[in-house]
Amino acid sequence: MDDVKIGEILLPGDEAKQERQEKTVLKKFWPTMKKAIRHVPFSRDVVAAFYCATDRNTPLRVRGILLAALGYFVMPIDAIPDMLAFVGFTDDIAVLTTALALINGHIKDAHYDAADLALADKVEAE
């Protein structure tokens, strides 16, 4: 997966596109995360990014980048099928890693706190 493709995936889009992506992410994030949690080495960061992306206090451009990355993560059709376990999540990991690097510093302690609580709940539910 080359940088140009990742750059295209992470375009924040306009507000209407972000709203569509947010609806998709809200609907599909947790079912996808549940399947991926053992394969994504930085699950806490991904969940914190989810909370940052859905936080209305996060700058619009940052929300757009995160929603684009999380939208790619939750979509069933991507460059490498996710059903191939870890290998299937490598392209998702590349997109998420790039997004996290681009928005470095915008994920706040409150987002990590929410991620920790959510992950603890998910682990206890299993």
Rank of each mutant, 00 (worst) to 15 (best):
Val47Ser: 08
Lys27Glu: 14
Ala114Gln: 15
Ala99His: 08
Ile80Lys: 01
Glu124Asn: 13
Thr98Gly: 01
Glu19His: 13
Ile93Glu: 07
Ala101Pro: 00
His39Ile: 06
Ile77Cys: 02
Asp78Cys: 09
Arg44Val: 05
Thr98Tyr: 01
Leu100Thr: 02
Lys17Tyr: 07
Gln18Thr: 07
Leu70Val: 06
Arg44Glu: 14
Gly105Asn: 11
Thr24Gln: 13
Lys122His: 08
Thr24Phe: 14
Leu66Tyr: 06
Phe29Ala: 09
Lys122Ala: 14
Pro59Asp: 11
Gly7Ala: 03
Leu10Pro: 11
Thr97Cys: 07
Leu60Asp: 09
Glu22Pro: 07
Leu119Arg: 13
Glu124His: 12
Arg63Ala: 09
Arg44Tyr: 05
Ile65Asp: 03
Arg38Tyr: 13
Ala49Cys: 03
Asp109Leu: 07
Ile103Pro: 04
Trp30Ser: 09
Asp91Ala: 08
Ala85Cys: 06
Lys27Asn: 10
Lys5Asp: 09
Ala49Lys: 04
Asp3Leu: 02
Ala101His: 05
Met33Ala: 15
Asp92Arg: 08
Leu66Cys: 06
Ala94His: 00
Arg56Asn: 05
Tyr112Arg: 13
Leu26Cys: 13
Leu84Glu: 08
Lys34Ser: 14
Phe50Trp: 02
Val40Glu: 03
Leu102Gln: 08
Ile107Cys: 07
Gly71Cys: 06
Phe29Ser: 07
Thr58Glu: 03
Phe86Leu: 11
Val47Glu: 10
Ala48Trp: 02
Phe50Ala: 02
Leu119Asp: 05
Ala79Val: 12
Tyr51Gly: 12
Lys35Glu: 15
Val40Trp: 10
Ile80Met: 04
Gly13His: 11
Met1Glu: 12
Ile37Tyr: 10
Asp82Tyr: 04
Tyr51Glu: 12
Ala125Arg: 15
Gly105Pro: 14
Ala79Leu: 15
Asp91Val: 06
Val4Leu: 12
Phe29Asp: 01
Leu10Cys: 00
Ala49Ser: 07
Ile77Gly: 06
Val123Trp: 09
Ala69Asp: 09
Ala114Ser: 15
Tyr72Cys: 01
Ala110Gly: 04
Ala125Val: 06
Pro76Asp: 15
Asp113Met: 08
Ala49Met: 10
Leu67Cys: 04
Asp78Tyr: 11
Phe73Lys: 00
Thr58Asp: 02
Ile93Gly: 06
